[in-house]
């Protein structure tokens, strides 16, 4: 396989994952903006959404104030925002187009169909009443893509490279959402356990579609920060947790190693990170600082992504 093909497969999956995550972040942000709260609180929530989405810089480069319509536009439709859903879907589709031969027809049709529909939508037509349905549609399209990928792709190098893109992005996303809550929205001691606090933990869980799963899993109706963090970091049962992402990343890198009959450094690094998560416990993580832990994780994740690119000759 061409190195360029591998890179495109990696990035197209990464961009679809990012589009889906963006829709989820917006869904939660929008939900909160509808709740009866103080204006400043509302502003903070949007700010944390922007930070979680890593779109703070691009937003403030164009806008002075935070307003709901401007945020929605920036995250969904702004061509100048490299992570807007529109940019993600277009880039994913263009990458798919460049490696059309490496994709099954179903995977290509999901990418192409999504972009064709999305490119027809005028931003003005997505008013408050249509937004929830529209965000649902974005998530569904990402799932159609993923379903096509899992259901039709040969378990060969093409498949593994696209898995790598998905899980590098997902791991980054989950780590950032958790970090924002913990670091940026660090509750004042008086707020711990308050409505606002619970509200925010619920937000974190909703951002990764895990608020119901949490209740089932812990058989507990209150959100305990400790458990939420554990759920999103160390539980392999949770499909957006860091450890789950690394289980898939190591598996995909091992798959590549088998296909090519070679073991590389990126494979060792990912395996090591996975082993660390597997042996980890929340006591230690909180003791040494959750923020530091998450920062380290994001850096390690980026490093592994760069190693993958170098190892497999991405242009």
């Amino acid at each position: 396989m061409l190195g360029r093909t591998a890179a495109s497969l990696f990035w197209l999956s990464r961009y679809v994952e990012r589009a889906e995550n963006m829709a989820r972040l917006l869904e939660v942000g929008y939900r909160i903006s509808l709740m009866p709260r103080a204006i400043e609180g509302h502003r903070d929530e949007w700010l944390s959404t922007l930070t979680s989405a890593a779109c703070e810089a691009s937003y403030f480069a164009k806008h002075k104030d935070i307003t709901t319509p401007e945020i929605i536009h920036h995250l969904l439709f702004d061509d100048d925002n490299p992570s807007s859903v529109r940019t993600c879907l277009r880039t994913a589709r263009n990458n798919g187009r460049a490696v059309r031969t490496a994709l099954t027809r179903d995977v290509w049709e999901s990418l192409n169909g999504t972009w064709n529909e999305y490119s027809q939508i005028t931003p003005g037509s997505i008013g408050p009443d249509r937004l929830p349905g529209f965000l649902d549609w974005i998530k569904q399209r990402a799932m159609v893509f993923r379903g096509a990928l899992l259901g039709t792709m040969l378990r060969h190098d093409t498949y593994y490279f696209s898995q790598l893109g998905t899980f590098v992005e997902r791991a980054d996303n989950t780590a950032r959402i958790l970090d924002v809550k913990y670091y940026i929205l660090l509750p004042k001691p008086s707020d711990v356990g308050s409505d606002v606090d619970i509200q925010q933990w619920s937000t974190v869980l909703r951002s990764v579609s895990a608020h119901r799963a949490y209740r089932w899993f812990y058989r507990d109706s209150t959100y305990r920060p400790w458990l939420v963090a554990e759920f999103l970091i160390l539980r392999e049962e949770m499909p957006r947790s860091l450890i789950f992402c690394y289980q898939w990343l190591t598996r995909s890198l091992n798959g590549l190693g088998e296909v090519y009959g070679q073991r590389y450094e990126c494979q060792n690094e990912a395996a090591e990170l996975y082993a660390r998560l597997k042996a980890g416990n929340m006591d230690d993580i909180f003791q040494s600082g959750l923020h530091e832990f998450l920062q380290d994780f994001v850096n390690a994740n980026n490093r592994i992504a760069a190693q993958i690119a170098q190892t497999y000759n991405f242009p």
């Binding site: 396989m1 061409l2 190195g3 360029r4 090519y260 070679q262 000759n313 242009p315």
Partner: peptide, 12 residues
């Protein structure tokens, strides 16, 4: 082109 042949850059 390298030496007397044409090659493509692959993942390997």
């Amino acid at each position: 082109v390298e030496g007397s042949h044409l090659y493509m850059r692959t993942t390997q």
